[in-house]
Design a protein around this nucleic acid. Structure first.
Length: 255
DNA sequence: ATGGTCGGCAACCGA
């Protein structure tokens, strides 16, 4: 089984890259974030022509999540309200005994801001939701854009960003609680080296060429799945294509 | 080298 996650930064702008990628990689599951499209405008026809089912939850202009799958998902849920706000940041479903949860965690703007508090509460609420609805002993995938780098290995300038948004101890502490509950960071299970990133800010001149990036996209899995993980890969080629997203695909294969 | 990012969506906001 092959699973991937990709912050598309608009599924419509990225449709050529996504369809090409589906054709070449043929994943069983593809988690997408920042689709930036309302449900009525979701490009479900091209996705179906590529041989995939799609479930999605979008909104105007911002956010938006989707899961593309070879087999249809059941028991789809799309709501995870935090502070009474229900943005399109969460979608979950089931494929047989496998549970899949796709998230687009708030970016957080600036440490100390209301948006940063919202990010922390959103992560804490996601953890509560996971702990209340799933078991560490059952197969669960939790993947997406978490907007948090965990260690000095996970961004190009740890000293420069220490304590800033995306690299703050309060964010990292909540992610650690997901691991404490029983989820495993599949990339880090296989790769011990640094300088391996999934996001490069468009605003940094030649940021991708200079590999000035962050590892903020994750595929997490409970132990029964993690033990079956055989390989993981960051697809840098998709970031080097014409009109790339600022993120790229993170891919994991399971027996 | 006197410039320097995207996407959505129609003036800026968010990343």
């Amino acid at each position: 089984m092959k699973v991937a996650t990709f912050n598309a930064n608009s599924i419509r702008a990225r449709l050529p890259i996504i369809l090409d990628w589906l054709g070449r990689e043929a994943p069983d599951l593809l988690f997408l974030q920042e689709t930036k499209v309302q449900d009525v405008d979701f490009p479900d026809n091209p996705v179906e022509e590529a041989g995939y089912h799609a479930v999605f939850r979008g909104q105007k202009t911002y956010n938006g999540v989707a899961i593309l799958s070879k087999s249809p998902l059941t028991d789809v849920e799309t709501e995870l309200p935090v502070q009474g706000i229900d943005e399109a940041r969460f979608i979950s479903g089931r494929m047989g005994t496998l549970h899949a949860v796709n998230v687009y965690v708030p970016q957080g703007f600036e440490v100390g801001s209301n948006k940063f508090q919202y990010k922390l509460q959103w992560l804490a609420h996601l953890l509560e939701h996971v702990a209340a609805h799933y078991e560490p002993s059952s197969p669960l995938l939790l993947a997406g854009d978490f907007n948090v780098a965990l260690t000095d290995l996970d961004l190009y300038d740890p000293e420069g960003f220490r304590g800033e948004v995306g690299f703050h101890p309060d964010e990292q502490a909540i992610l650690q609680q997901f691991f404490g509950w029983g989820l495993v960071d599949i990339f880090r299970r296989h790769v011990k080296e640094g300088n391996q990133y999934t996001f490069w800010d468009y605003r940094i001149p030649n940021g991708f060429k200079r590999n000035m990036g962050w590892r903020i996209d994750y595929i997490l899995a409970t132990a029964p799945l993690a033990e079956r993980s055989r390989s993981v890969r960051i697809d840098r080629e998709a970031r080097a294509m014409e009109k790339p997203s600022d993120h790229t695909f993170l891919v994991a294969e399971f027996d």
